[in-house]
């Protein structure tokens, strides 16, 4: 359980800033630091988390010209997808009953970690002709 709690916030913060290599390094460093601090009976699970973090690649979706790119995405369970709005108009990411971003102004981001397999259709609640799908395997 601790393993999931540790990993998730790190990735989330990472997504909110940017997915640059430097941030990634920092996030991993932070995770390792936590690992050291909290090392105890949960040790084995924490180890697993680090392996998983390295294995599942996080993915970006860009919003340009009122379009999600890529609009169709297939990812592995555990992947964090980060959307970045590069338009001069705000957008949202809404998957009915699953997740809902705040309004993202220009350069705003939203990240969601997909922990369950399935097909997630989403759209922009302000411009509903903008639609996309994340398939989680």
């Amino acid at each position: 359980m601790i393993s999931a709690t540790l990993r998730s916030p790190g990735i989330r913060r990472l997504g909110i800033r940017s997915l640059g290599i430097r941030s990634l390094g920092l996030a991993i460093a932070a995770a390792m630091l936590l690992h050291v601090n909290f090392a105890s009976a949960e040790d084995a699970k924490v180890e697993n988390t680090n392996v998983e973090t390295a294995k599942v690649e996080d993915t970006k979706v860009m919003i340009d010209n009122f379009t999600f790119e890529p609009a169709q995405l297939t990812v592995k369970v555990g992947t964090t997808v980060t959307w970045t709005n590069r338009d001069d108009i705000p957008h949202t990411i809404v998957s009915a009953g699953k997740f809902r971003s705040k309004t993202m102004d220009t350069d705003g981001t939203f990240s969601f970690t997909f922990t369950t397999a399935g097909e997630y259709k989403y759209f922009c609640s302000l411009h509903p002709h903008m639609t996309g799908t994340v398939k989680v395997e």
Partner: peptide, 8 residues
């Protein structure tokens, strides 16, 4: 309000 995915 209450706009539907893919709609107007």
């Amino acid at each position: 309000v209450d706009l539907k995915a893919g709609g107007l």
